[in-house]
Design a binder for these strands. Structure first.
Length: 424
RNA sequence: GGAGGGGUGGCUGAGCGGUUUAAAGCGGCGGAUUGCUAAUCCGUUGGGCAGAAAUGUCCACGCAGGUUCGAAUCCUGUCCCCUCCGCCA
């Protein structure tokens, strides 16, 4: 959520953000400002009526003579329907205003490239050597079948479209990746959190997934929804609370299953375990004091953690600076990391690193008291640490051998207990 | 699922229809004093709106309704927390 004062003073900036983020038609800023000015007007009227009532209340309270009291009570009674009527108008406008505000996106940072879709993203770094093969490398779809690392056929039987089991050594390798990422972040001083995956919808609104991404989430009984990422639970952890500046930065790291309906990607990546409805992810979330400079430092640092893990796994990747059309409504700036998938012969998205300034904190009512005693909204950031089975898929495509086996990366061996996965 | 108790500011906690300001304390911030620290004293410390400011005004006691001229206080609903009982991985 943006500050309404900012929107009033910079309507063109916000309108432009809506345009470059490809969100035209979702919210009309002129309509919002119209409702806002009506709301301001009615608020003043209501204040004035209440002031009159309060004044009469005092007269009633201090007038001991019952007869002299009567006309005041009479006057206050006449004021009542007026106040009720104005209150109803106010409520109606306030609801309208709040609903519109939820649809106003964040403004992209100045260094975010303008673009309509993923073609506008800018490659800013290429890291690692792509493995060379003296044979035709297989995709993970074939590898998981040959080595029995996953079973999508029975997965679909049990869980429907995009269903899968990760099996045998594949399952162990998947857990090894997650555990390695988990331990890595603990070493960086992050607090480990195993988080709720079924949450109240207000936190999906608070983190900015709703209303835009409502269709991509699963709703469950009792007005709860399944999270698409641990970010939702982690970022909401301190919602409606006031932290102290010395508590910042808050560095949280959580693991959770993630649920995504993938409504916008019908027919994409339908084979294998690349794009699925449920996956596991280790996520990092940081809460900072209100400084964009500091935020940008941390944004890069969090990207660095993810890169370090990929480098330790010896996986080649590149980093993209996402353009306006390919970033979320709430995000101010975003990097994606795409890992090289040797079998597919292309880079595929595995990580997403974003910052929001106070956009999420306003929705979550999450503040801190600064050194001068002022209350401010915290600034929030999040990034993937490792997501499987997608990263597992990339890993086996890069670590496959001519004889059909897959070698386990050095750093994972203490978790797997085996060095290589061979065909039976 | 059953029976009780309770949600008040950054925190603790009083108030239980109107004593015009939500007491008091702690913590924070500003100042005074001070070799330094500590202590002490004074001020300040929820959110809007108007104003350069002084100030004025409205709102706010989990949330939403209701009763009333007037609600933190009474009533209804709802969410959450605590204690006990039952069930349970």
């Amino acid at each position: 959520m943006l500050d309404i004062k900012f929107i009033r003073e910079n309507p063109d900036v916000v309108k432009n953000a809506i345009k470059v983020k490809q969100l035209e038609g979702t919210v009309d800023i002129d309509e919002l400002l119209q409702v806002d000015s009506e709301l301001q007007k009615i608020t003043k009227e209501l204040d004035e009526l209440r002031r009159q009532r309060n004044e009469l209340d005092k007269k009633i309270k201090f007038e001991k003579d019952l007869e002299k009291k009567k006309p005041f009570i009479e006057e206050a009674s006449q004021l009542k329907p007026k106040i009720n009527e104005t209150e109803n108008k106010y409520k109606e406008l306030k609801e309208k205003f709040d609903a519109l505000m939820l649809w106003v996106p964040n403004v992209p940072a100045d260094d975010v490239p303008i673009g309509e879709d993923e073609s506008g993203n800018v490659e800013i770094r290429v890291v690692g050597e792509k493995p060379e093969f003296d044979f035709e490398p297989k995709t993970h779809v074939d590898l998981i079948e040959n080595l029995k690392l996953a079973d999508t056929k029975r997965g679909t039987k049990i869980a429907g479209f995009r269903g899968y089991f990760v099996t045998g050594k594949g399952a162990i390798l998947e857990q090894a990746i997650l555990r390695y990422a988990y331990d890595f972040m603990v070493e960086q001083g992050f607090t480990a959190m195993n988080v709720p995956v079924m949450v109240k919808k207000e936190w999906l609104v608070g983190t900015g997934y709703f209303p835009w991404g409502q269709e991509d989430h699963y709703s469950v009984e009792d007005d709860l929804a399944l999270v698409g990422t641990a970010e939702v639970s982690l970022t909401s952890y301190y919602a409606n609370e006031v932290l102290k500046e010395e508590d910042l930065p808050v560095k949280l790291m959580g693991i959770s299953p993630c649920f995504r309906r993938e409504v916008g990607s019908h027919g994409k990546d339908t084979r294998g375990i690349f794009r699925v409805h449920y996956f596991n992810k280790v996520e990092q979330v940081v809460l900072l004091p209100a400084s964009e400079d500091l935020t940008r430092e941390w944004h890069d640092r969090m990207l660095g953690y993810a890169e370090q893990i990929l480098q330790n796994l010896n996986l080649p990747y590149h980093v993209l600076l996402m353009c306006t059309g390919d970033m979320g409504a709430g995000q101010r700036k975003k990097y994606d990391i795409e890992v090289w998938f040797s079998g597919q012969g292309k880079y595929r998205e595995t990580h997403s690193d974003s910052y929001f300034l106070d956009f999420q904190a306003r929705r979550l009512n999450m503040k801190y008291v600064d050194k001068d005693g002022n209350k401010k909204y915290v600034y929030t950031l999040n990034n993937t640490v490792a997501a499987t089975p997608r990263l597992l898929a990339g890993l086996i495509e890069n670590y496959q051998q001519k004889d059909g086996s897959v070698v386990v990366p050095e750093v994972l061996r203490k978790y797997t207990g085996f060095d290589v996965i061979e065909p039976e």
